[in-house]
């Protein structure tokens, strides 16, 4: 009797969230899968093409470019974020707690700025005539080698750096929290064994942070793979599609070129890419939680 009451209560507390998630995420997902099998053009009846849109993706040079850009963007962005975020977290951990906390609060500021504003800010930074980046490079005479947002060779890196500015604090904060649970005696023991600070970082700190790093890489990686706002706000995919990401290309196909079926197919391919790249990491971190 009590058990049945418990089940009923469980149903009542879970159902609202489940209904919201199902109606806003899963129903649209099924709709997207369904739509992705049709060729839809303005003013014409939809034609069932089954996997035709998916086949088209792999012969469309812009789509393949977007796929390569997305993977490249994710790698560059994750590398910068992890390097800066983990590095600064470890440095701040060596300071007196009060100083460290204040600096951590200052360094976390960019995280709370909207990606569209980040885009706006970095457009000023990268402005060829008045931008700070060009001025800075100009003081050491390097500005002529830097293409900024207008050169196909540089644009993707530039956007990835702008995005890294935005989200590095997240990694810093999470790694900082992870560092606080590493027992001090482990460092003490390593120091007694004669390990220098750099060896301690690589042989003590980083191995103990594996689980935390997996979680942040998962959260940040899935976000970077679906990047939209910051590219939309800085380059809108240009120049010459050099910064077109899968999400941006799907958006353009579906909403600007009115090829809804194709746009949805690209979105589904993005989802499959995410599962393929991050699925194993996700299963590992879920299993890690169960072990505790």
């Amino acid at each position: 009797m009590i058990r049945r009451k418990e089940l009923l209560l469980g149903f009542c507390v879970i159902a609202p969230a489940a209904i919201v998630i199902a109606s806003v995420m899963f129903i649209p997902l099924f709709y997207a899968i369904y739509t992705s099998m049709y060729e839809i053009k303005a003013g014409q009846a939809p034609v069932f093409v089954f996997l035709g849109n998916y086949g088209r993706f792999f012969t469309d040079p812009v789509a393949l470019r977007s796929l390569a850009n997305t993977v490249g963007y994710t790698v560059i962005n994750l590398a910068i974020c992890l390097l800066f975020g983990v590095g600064i977290a470890i440095l701040l951990d060596t300071l007196r707690p009060k100083v460290g906390n204040i600096l951590r609060a200052v360094f976390s500021m960019p995280l709370f700025i909207s990606p569209i504003i980040v885009a706006l800010i970095w457009r000023y930074m990268y402005d060829p005539q008045y931008g700070f980046v060009y001025w800075l490079l100009g003081t050491v005479g390097l500005d002529q080698y830097f293409g900024g947002l207008t050169s196909p060779a540089w644009a993707l890196v530039c956007v990835a750096v702008a995005d890294a500015w935005n989200v590095t604090p997240f990694i810093m904060l999470v790694v900082s929290a992870g560092l606080t649970v590493i027992p001090e005696d482990l460092y003490e023991a390593a120091r007694l064994d004669g390990a220098g600070p750099i060896r301690i970082v690589f042989n003590v700190t980083l191995p103990l942070l594996t689980k935390v790093l997996a979680v942040v890489a998962l959260i940040r990686g899935t976000d970077a793979f679906r990047v939209f706002d910051i590219i939309y706000g800085t380059t809108n995919g240009g120049p010459a599609n050099s910064t077109s990401s899968l999400s941006l290309y799907a958006y353009k196909a579906a909403y600007q070129q009115n090829e809804l079926g194709y746009g949805m197919a690209i979105a589904i391919i993005t989802l499959l890419g995410l599962i393929l790249l991050f699925g194993p990491l996700m299963r590992n971190s879920a299993r890690g939680k169960d072990d505790l």
Binding site: I14, M25, P28, L29, Y31, Y255, M264, T270, M282
Partner: peptide, 24 residues
């Protein structure tokens, strides 16, 4: 099982939700 299903929701690309949600 339900918790995992919820997490799959986090992976769904927002672009694919946009139009159906608009219609809804």
């Amino acid at each position: 099982w339900i918790a995992n299903a919820f997490m799959v929701g986090k992976l769904v690309p927002v672009i694919s939700m946009l139009l159906p949600l608009f219609v809804l």
